[in-house]
Nucleic acid binder design. Structure first.
Lengths: 342, 342
DNA sequence: CTGATTTATGAAAAAGGTTTCTTTAAAAGA
DNA sequence: TCTTTTAAAGAAACCTTTTTCATAAATCAG
C-alpha cells in the first residue's frame, strides 16, 4: 500500500518517466505516444491508484492550485459563510484553499503572508487588517494575483470587492428616522478601516440631512465580549434619551442586544435596533431584528472570479477595480414605526 | 524583489549550499561551521529576507508542518468555532492547517483525502461522513497520524474525541420530564452516524425510564432548510399533543424554532424546547433557549494534542483511544417548569 | 615526523515531478 | 537511392532543499 511514484510506474513498465508523464498529463497525442503505450500506462496507473505528489509538481511548475484565504475570524458567521462559498467556487474550478484567521493583527498577518508565499499559493483573497499596506503593495509588485474584500486600501491599486457601506449605513439610519426615532446612536468600532469609516459617514450624513444630533460611541477593537456588553450598557444608561441604535458590526450587535436586554428596554418600543450583518437567527428573534445583509454569495464568487481571472490571464489587466455590491436592508420588527410609536 | 533561493545566497557569498543550509537550520555548531561564516550567512540571509521554499523542503523531508482538517460545513457555528480553536492551537505549535467542508458527502471526502495525501499533510483531524470507513482504515494502515472528532467508527481503532452523546441526550430529555412535559418529541436526522444514534438512544432511555411514549421524527439528511421548516411544522401540526421537543442538531433546531414560530406556539408554555449545540444568540432569545453545549475548546485542543502526539512520537501508541468529554446542559427559559406549567 | 583526528567546507544524491533536447527508426519526398 | 520528415520514446536538466559522503587543512598523539 506504499505510495507509488511516477518513477515506479516507469520502471515497472520499462518505459521512461517522460513517457509516463506525458500520458498522465494528457499530452500523449501531441507528443506522438502510441495508442497502445498510452493505454498500457493509463491502465496501470489506475490499477495502482497513482496520485502525483503535488509538492513535486508545484515545485517544478510553480503552480500549486492553492488559493490563500485570510479572514478576520473564521468563527464569525459573516466570514465563515464567505469562506464556505469561496471554497465551493474554488473547488469547482480545481482549486483548493488554505485559510487562516488574522485576528485583525498585522503582525500575525505578515507572518501568515510569508508562510503562504513560501508555500507558493497561486493567489490571495484577503480581508486585510489595518497596517499591512506595505505587504499588500509588495504582493502587488511581485505580480501575485490578489483580491481584497470587505475592506481595502484606497491608495493601493488592488482588485477589491465590497458592499456600498456608505449608502447602506445611510439607508439604515434613514430607515430609523422614517420610523420616528429621534435620538439615534451609532455604535461602532474604533477603527480606521475604510468599511467602518464609510458606515460612520453614512450614518452622519443621514443625521445631518434630518438635522438630528450625532450620538457616536466607538468601542476599542480588541475589547472582550463581556466588556463590550458592559460598555454599551453604561453608554445607554448614561444617555437615556437615545431611542434607537445602529450597530456597525454583528459582534457589537450581539453585545448590544445583551445590554439592551439587561437594561430591560423593550425593542422596538423603547429602543429601535438595526444591525450591520444579518445573522441566521435574527429572523427568529422576538422581535425579529432588522439587519443590513451583505450579499455573501456574490461577494465570494466575485472575489473568486476576479482572482481566477488574474491567475489565468497572467494578471496585469483587470486589477485596480473596486467592485461595489449593494447590501439589502431587511426591515424586520426591531425598527418598525407602527410598533415603535403606537 | 524576486524571491531569493538558498542557491542564490550560496553563489552570492561564494560558499556551498550545504553550508548555507546548515547555518540557516541552526546546525552550524554541530557541523563545525566557523563563527565568522555563520554570522556572514545569517546576516546576509536576513538582509535579503530569505524564506525557504516550503514545497522543496516538504518534498525533501517529508514533513510539511501542515494539518488537514475536514469538517462537515465550515459555515456551521459548531464546526467553525472548533476549527478556529484548532487553528489557534496548531499555529502555536508551528503548524498550519488546510481545511475543507465535506458536506457529509463520502465521494467528495474521498477526493479531498487524496488531495491532502498528495500534498503530504502531516496529519488529519476529521469529522467523518458516513461511508468512508475503508479510507479511514487505510489512512490508519499507512501510518498517517489521524484523529476523528464529533463522530467515529466504533470498529476502527482510531483516536477519537467526542462528547458523551448518550448521557447528554438522556439528561436533556430527563430535564424536560422534570419540568412536567409529558409528550416529548425527538427530532433528529435520519442518519446512522454514531453520535446521532447515541443521542437517539439517550432520548429513548429517558422516555422508557419515565414510561413515556417515544415520538421520533427523522429528517432526511440533505433536506434543504425551507423544507425542514415545513416538515417540522407539519409534524407538530399533526401531533398537537406534543408539548416539548428535543432537537438533535442546531440545524434542525433553527428550522424547528421557525416552525414553532409559524404555528404560533408559545415557548415554553405550549412547547418546551431543548436544542443540541448551543449557539451564540440562544442566550439572547426571548425566551432564551435551553441547549446542550459541547465543550468546543476542549474538543479542539484535545484533538490537536492527540494528533501532535502521534506525529512527534512516531505514532503507533496512543491510538485507539476515545476521549469522551462531558457536555453541559444550559438550562434556560425555553424549558423551565415554573414557566411551563404555572 | 608520521599517522590519526578534528575542523571547516563542498560535491553530489535524493525527493518526485515536468520539460527540453536527443536519438532511433520508419515514412515520405526528390 | 539519398535526404528530409515524422513518429515514438528516452536522457538529462531543472525546481529547491536536505543530507550523506568526501576532501583538504589543521591539530594532536606518540
Amino acid at each position: 500500500m506504499k505510495k507509488v511514484s511516477l518513477k515506479d510506474i516507469a520502471e515497472r513498465l520499462n518505459v521512461s518517466k517522460t513517457t509516463v508523464s506525458f500520458v498522465l498529463n494528457g499530452k500523449a497525442k501531441e507528443n506522438h505516444i502510441s495508442e497502445a503505450m498510452t493505454q498500457k500506462i493509463l491502465h496501470y496507473a489506475k490499477e495502482v491508484g497513482y496520485m502525483p505528489n503535488q509538492l513535486a509538481k508545484g515545485l517544478r511548475t510553480g503552480e500549486t492550485k492553492i488559493l490563500g484565504v485570510m479572514v478576520e475570524d473564521i468563527s464569525d458567521p459573516f466570514f465563515s459563510s464567505i469562506t464556505r462559498t469561496i471554497e465551493e467556487q474554488a473547488y469547482q474550478k480545481g482549486y483548493k484553499i488554505v485559510y487562516c484567521s488574522t485576528e485583525n493583527d498585522p503582525v500575525k498577518t505578515k507572518e501568515l503572508l510569508e508562510v503562504y508565499k513560501s508555500r507558493q499559493v497561486d493567489g490571495f483573497i484577503i480581508a486585510p487588517p489595518p497596517g499591512v499596506e506595505q505587504e499588500v503593495q509588495s504582493l502587488l509588485d511581485s505580480g501575485l494575483p490578489l483580491v481584497l474584500f470587505d475592506r481595502y486600501f484606497p491608495n493601493i491599486p488592488t482588485a477589491n470587492v465590497v458592499v456600498d457601506n456608505l449608502a447602506s449605513a445611510h439607508r439604515a439610519a434613514q430607515h430609523l428616522v422614517f420610523n420616528n426615532y429621534r435620538q439615534i446612536a451609532f455604535i461602532t468600532l474604533d477603527s480606521e478601516q475604510n468599511q467602518m469609516q464609510e458606515r460612520l459617514t453614512g450614518y452622519m450624513k443621514a443625521m445631518d440631512e434630518n438635522e438630528q444630533k450625532h450620538h457616536i460611541r466607538k468601542i476599542p477593537f480588541d475589547m472582550p465580549y463581556s466588556q463590550v456588553v458592559q460598555t454599551i450598557e453604561a453608554y445607554l444608561g448614561q444617555h437615556p434619551f437615545i431611542d434607537a441604535v445602529l450597530f456597525s458590526t454583528s459582534y457589537l450587535a450581539d453585545g448590544g442586544l445583551e445590554a439592551i436586554k439587561n437594561l430591560n428596554l423593550r425593542i422596538p418600543h423603547d429602543m429601535g435596533v438595526v444591525v450591520f450583518d444579518d445573522e441566521k437567527l435574527f429572523r427568529l428573534f422576538t422581535p425579529s431584528i432588522t439587519a443590513v445583509a451583505q450579499p455573501i454569495k456574490e461577494i465570494a464568487s466575485t472575489a473568486v472570479d476576479l482572482l481566477l481571472n488574474q491567475i489565468t490571464s497572467g494578471q496585469k489587466q483587470l486589477v485596480n477595480k473596486t467592485t461595489i455590491l449593494p447590501a439589502t436592508l431587511l426591515e424586520r420588527d426591531s425598527s418598525v414605526a407602527a410598533l415603535a410609536k403606537p
